[in-house]
Design a protein around this nucleic acid. Sequence first.
RNA 1: GGCCCCAUCGUCUAUCGGUUAGGACACCGGCUUUUCAUGCCGGUAAGCGGAGUUCGACUCUCCGUGGGGUCACCA
Length: 474
Amino acid sequence: MEKKIVTRFAPSPTGFMHVGGVRTALYAWAWARKNNGTFILRIEDTDKAREVEGSIPHIIESLKWLGITWDEGVDIGGPNAPYLQSERLSSYKKYAQILIDKGYAYADPYSEAEVAAFRAEAEAEKRAFLYRDHRPTTTTPWDGTTSLRFKVPEIKSYTWTDAVRGELSAGVEALDDFVLIKSDGYPTYNFAHIIDDLEMGVTHIMRADEFIASTPKFLSLYEALGIVPPVLVTLPPILAPEGNKKLGKRDGAKDILEYRKEGYLSEAMVNFLAFLGWNPGGEVEIMTPEEIVEAFTIERIHKSGAMLNEEKLLWINKEHMKRKDSASQLEAIKPYMSGYGDELLMRLLPTIIDRINTYGELASIEESEFRFFIARPQTEVERVLFKDDEPHVALRHLTKVKELLETADFSSPEAIKATIMPYAETEGKGNVLWPLRMSLSGQEKSVDPFTICYVLGKDEVFARIDAICHTLRS
RNA sequence: GGCCCCAUCGUCUAUCGGUUAGGACACCGGCUUUUCAUGCCGGUAAGCGGAGUUCGACUCUCCGUGGGGUCACCA
């Protein structure tokens, strides 16, 4: 029997989640789900100085919005609880002691200022900084008041296999005595994640490519502890829309919940993020989260980075909107369309969906584009219609159109169109359809007159035509 | 600067030695719509450079070049 797949997403609570973090979570989640495995949400809160109040609930809400669910985690517990690193200090101490006993860890005799000076020196000489160049010859027992450093057992170059990148390697410069436990008693990421992944049985580690450089350190630690490392899955970077730098918060990476606020669909967001670094291989671009999980494979994760393209996101969102059934479209639109009845909105729905990329856009166009459905501005109707130097022509057409509409089928814009067009074709479309739309909407630019008739309904259409005919006669 | 990673249209990508290098976004044009939007049809646009391997390279190897990452008591 195959080993059960266990993946995790382990963010630090230092603020909101942006697309980079969410994409990592998404891939780890998809891989676990695809294999009926376990997905864990762990919080890496070992840097108390950078911690931002409220981050954890925010992270949880972000993941939940996207439909990324976990089997074990901070909020729900699980067999490997706790899932908050600050509550797992005893584990780190245990393994730290093992390393000390093996002679693979020692108390750092230098102050932070001294280490900083070493680093400045290396930088000035354009050299990579290596702490082990300053490794003390004699060590005192670690009493917990200083940091505890890993003593790399063997300085060598590493070659390892990455599930995405294939064979990777690094020179000996990548190997150094790094801090295991900080002087404040908390472990570093470098140490903690290895212990947690071991204790939680994690089989696959998904993370972005900035960790390639530190992989030899991890490998050395795995060896020192006699651990078989999990499968390493390196994700490609997400690049900022302009320039070629990696997308980060300071390059305008948005809070993922900002997209929700803007009216994006979560499944569109998942679709977009999934394709930013992965591709199923065919020509299908619109997929549901379920389809993505089904199609997801590590082999098809890309090596090279991709730029964030919000225009594509907009298009993906529109495609997902169009695929929704009308009932859920209606529910999504309602908050933006107060004052419109459900029945009216249902008829208006196709017109609205055609014109927007996100539901959120309705917040800005509601007043201008769909206003005529509530009340047409009478003075505007007259101003335009009477500009025509032959109002009796308009009157003749409206009278005829009204006659046609008496027997028209109002069940769809197409049906109405089929009724009116034969007449319009013989009389000149512009001459006929123009006064019709003006009399109904009072707007020069709006949807086609057939849709207007359909949306307004028979009674309202007749009332409006009658009113304008009356004015034209007098 | 050391170490490392990456490289197909403007952007996201398909191709896993033999293709007129395909699709999508964006852009441009046409049709439909009296206008807008949608929809449909069409168009512009790509293998970073140089060696090598091979009957044959976008695809494999090497060297350049370019971009990125990393060199924390941050993750």
